[in-house]
Simulated scan of single mutants.
Amino acid sequence: MTKPAPHLITFVLLTALTVISTTMFLPALPAMQSEFGVNEATIGLSVTAYMIAAAGLQLLLGPLSDRVGRRPVIVSVLSIYAASSLVCVFAQDIVVFLAARTVQAVAMTAGILVAAMVRDLFDGPMAAAKLATISSAMAIVPMMAPVLGGFLDVQFGWRSIFVFYALTGAGLLIWVLRDLAETRPDRTAETPERRRMLLREARFWAFAFCQALGAGGFYVFLVGSPFVAAALYGLDSGQIGIGLGSVTMGFMAASALSARTVHRFGPFRLIVVGRLASLLGLGAGFVVFSITTPPVWVFYAVTIWVGVGNGLTLANANALALAVRPRLAGTASGICGALGNLVIAAMSMVTTITLADEASATRLLLLLMGVVGASLFSAILGHRLDRGQGQGA
């Protein structure tokens, strides 16, 4: 460790903000669609446009944090997030709502800056372990956010979710101003030539795609499972919220396991185990749903393997990508985040199209298996490139 770190809770809260901003409102999508009087594709822009905007902002703000520092960028992000959340609360027109919702995408920058700050402070497997610890510590958030979102929608209406967003952003801004110290290394490391060298690193792109596809698979589940659960089992938004939260139990356990074992096995081996576990679990579910329609708990018991696989994959793939050019952690993290959000946006759109005429479990599971398989391929490619340069994972 090169300099004192901010409190762990600060990293956890900043990471949690990216999760609640993308998952908490999902159970309320049908209610929002009904109030604005739009179709599924239009209200779905609250996910896809958000992710596309987040990608552009991360490409901008990640490198900016290498220049001006992590702290001022995070302070600006939280201020904009709180203000745009209030606009969503009072929006009466779908265009105004979607515009404000898109501006909310600045929240996604908090997550990539946490990764950059961890890489500022720690090296190698230690960085992977710290990222996994942060993921494990805040894993209760993706479990509870959809549950809380469904509850708020049922009890107070969907706008109360955006009130919660505004209060969270303002509260976190106050906390960050008090606790967050600057972690950025000497800015002389950030040069146009070094940025170009990063962009030419094939192993960086391989690990970045591994992480992006892992996150994309999670959003295939988040976007697709409510439609499957409603079509097959008739669940309401509150029940769907509980189901959405279930997958993070696997993520929490696997992230904690990764933090404890990465020093022994290395990031790459844990990624492979995570990808294969997801494929086996989802494959078994595909066979079952091809034969019959089992009880609803079976559906979530199968999809929980998405969380298990990501718990062993995401932090490790992120650490391997940022380790390629550690002095450009902000730029690298911004690219990884942007790529992830573009993949998430694309997979969200593919998911809605795939399930548009038939919200079947087999279609959803087959799509998930394809994304997980592609993520595994990217990890193997990155590892071979690493070994070719004498830098085994």
Score class of each variant (00 low, 15 high):
29 L>V: 13
64 L>G: 03
90 F>C: 05
34 S>G: 13
25 F>V: 13
9 I>A: 14
82 A>E: 01
71 R>C: 02
17 L>D: 05
35 E>A: 15
53 A>R: 10
72 P>Y: 10
34 S>V: 12
65 S>D: 00
79 S>Q: 03
88 C>A: 11
78 L>W: 00
15 T>R: 12
62 G>I: 05
37 G>Y: 07
80 I>N: 05
54 A>Q: 11
49 A>I: 00
78 L>V: 00
14 L>I: 08
16 A>H: 09
74 I>M: 12
16 A>F: 09
42 T>D: 10
91 A>R: 05
82 A>Q: 02
52 I>N: 08
60 L>W: 04
77 V>L: 14
57 L>I: 12
40 E>I: 15
47 V>M: 14
86 L>W: 11
13 L>V: 10
65 S>E: 00
77 V>W: 11
80 I>D: 07
34 S>E: 14
91 A>D: 03
48 T>S: 12
39 N>W: 03
74 I>C: 06
45 L>W: 02
45 L>M: 14
89 V>Y: 07
59 L>M: 13
22 T>S: 13
87 V>E: 01
76 S>M: 11
50 Y>P: 04
72 P>I: 10
47 V>A: 11
33 Q>D: 05
58 Q>H: 11
53 A>T: 11
72 P>V: 09
89 V>A: 13
64 L>Y: 01
12 V>T: 12
69 G>M: 06
29 L>K: 08
62 G>W: 02
58 Q>Y: 07
89 V>H: 08
84 S>Y: 00
62 G>F: 05
89 V>E: 06
25 F>K: 12
61 L>I: 11
24 M>L: 13
76 S>A: 13
72 P>C: 07
27 P>T: 07
66 D>L: 04
33 Q>W: 05
30 P>D: 04
33 Q>I: 03
44 G>T: 04
45 L>T: 10
78 L>P: 01
71 R>E: 01
80 I>L: 15
26 L>W: 00
58 Q>E: 15
82 A>V: 02
58 Q>N: 15
26 L>Y: 02
13 L>S: 10
9 I>L: 14
18 T>P: 10
53 A>K: 12
74 I>H: 06
39 N>K: 06
39 N>V: 08
81 Y>M: 03
41 A>K: 11
61 L>V: 11
85 S>Y: 01
44 G>D: 08
77 V>H: 12
58 Q>R: 13
44 G>M: 03
38 V>I: 10
44 G>F: 00
19 V>E: 14
79 S>F: 12
40 E>G: 14
59 L>G: 13
25 F>T: 13
25 F>D: 06
41 A>G: 07
88 C>E: 01
88 C>T: 07
74 I>W: 07
40 E>Y: 14
72 P>H: 09
70 R>V: 02
66 D>T: 03
38 V>F: 01
69 G>S: 06
71 R>M: 00
15 T>E: 13
43 I>Y: 06
45 L>C: 11
26 L>C: 05
67 R>V: 10
70 R>Q: 00
16 A>G: 15
74 I>G: 08
73 V>T: 11
32 M>Y: 02
50 Y>V: 03
90 F>T: 13
74 I>R: 03
59 L>S: 09
51 M>N: 14
54 A>C: 10
29 L>H: 08
82 A>G: 07
42 T>I: 15
44 G>K: 04
26 L>A: 12
64 L>P: 03
58 Q>W: 04
39 N>T: 08
63 P>S: 04
32 M>S: 04
12 V>F: 06
80 I>F: 10
49 A>H: 04
91 A>M: 01
